[in-house]
Design a protein around this nucleic acid. Structure first.
Lengths: 216, 216
DNA sequence: GCGAGAATAAAACGAACGTTTAATTAATTC
DNA sequence: GAATTAATTAAACGTTCGTTTTATTCTCGC
């Protein structure tokens, strides 16, 4: 009735995070009890409070790290100095790859915002805005350069993000479509949506310009 | 202390539904207590059970009526026998109008599915599928007729629905954009997304075909 | 104006909730 | 190998939850 053999704080905390993401994604934050979470980890409920002071602290930690991970993934994937179409393609590919890989934590970060205190909600939304601004900048650059045809940059950015993030609602690995097929189709839809004019760098854009604008 | 002067079953039930949609949309189903709901209506918690046998029955009723309302709205707005582009435009306009007008119940119907029992979840999903099949049929007809250019009908339908429904996340009446401006932009994005070739019926499609494909 | 049914209030039920306290054992340090 | 610290259990606390029971008052048809 106390410390158990082989117990390890780091391992337990990791197990708690993992189980929490999974349980909150499935049941919802309010519906998941701390006892349920503890049972999933194989521990008593009180042990959870060794790692997270409150249930809301746990939720906030999961969300913050999800958003920070998303921003870091984009920082790593971002092309150095490229034309808007290439940057947009990289953004779409990174967004879809990240969200499919982290379906559960995406679910948590998108659905449980209302369970955060005002301060913490603000912090998460600030991270989200940081990430979304990157897309708006790409769209604006492309529109100014004349390679995109966009009515409203902000509205288009929101539409694209909703469309791309929506993948996690229906996509299941190993079903009809592979990740790369889904990504390719979404990339194609994105390029049409923004009215991308040319394919991008390498292709000879002389012949292609004549017929159709919605390449790739 | 029992029946109060002026009490009326129909009025109370309507007030309960209205307050429930609003509270669940704001707090979430699990986070809303029956006492909170009762207080919002101006009644004791026990009185709610005169109208809905359980909390889940209340949620299910709200969701079912939302989905039925969506299907009925489309049945009323559906153009008789028109070309795919006209039908798609009608679908988009109806979808956005309905979802903006019923933001709260849309939120409830999309976010609280996991609080339903298996049977009831199935019923709601069946209604949703019924509605989404309409869009898939339009896309398929357009693709077969050669007026749309679509890689994957099912995937495109999901992308469009996610994109359109996402309006309720950020749209607030009376802000920067009016409903009709938002609808027009989404219509334009939709037509580009599906690669719509011509404007639709009335226009002379001889001259327009040359230059750009993404009209409207 | 009386009887029946509709609409509610008041109070209580047991269960579950997040969290705290105190005690106990395993691992680590010196 | 003793002292210290880390990790955990067991038990309890007060609160809140969905729901039920019982009783009471209003409304309406006759």
């Amino acid at each position: 009735m106390a410390r158990t053999t082989g117990s390890d704080g780091e391992k337990t905390e990791a197990a708690v995070r993992e189980a929490a993401v999974s349980l909150i994604a499935r049941l919802g934050y309010e519906a998941m009890s701390m006892r349920q979470l503890a049972a999933e980890v194989g521990v008593q409920a009180a042990a959870l409070y060794h790692y997270f002071p409150t249930k809301e602290d746990l939720l906030f930690t999961l969300m913050r790290e999800h958003m920070e991970g998303l921003i870091e993934a984009w920082d790593a994937a971002r092309p150095a100095a490229a034309d808007p179409a290439t940057r947009l393609a990289a953004y779409v590919e990174n967004h879809i790859a990240f969200h499919i890989e982290r379906r559960h934590s995406t679910h948590v970060s998108n659905m449980e915002l209302r369970s955060l205190s005002h301060n913490r909600l603000t912090q998460i939304l600030k991270l989200r805005t940081t990430y979304e601004k990157e897309l708006r900048a790409i769209l604006r650059d492309g529109a100014e350069a004349g390679v995109f045809d966009i009515e409203d940059t902000g509205l288009t950015a929101m539409a694209l993000i909703q469309m791309m993030t929506g993948v996690i609602v229906w996509f299941r690995p190993g079903e009809r479509l592979s990740i790369s097929e889904v990504t390719a189709t979404y990339l194609s839809m994105t390029m049409r949506l923004v009215g991308a004019k040319a394919r991008s760098a390498t292709t000879t854009d002389s012949a292609e310009r004549t017929n159709d604008a919605v390449a790739l």
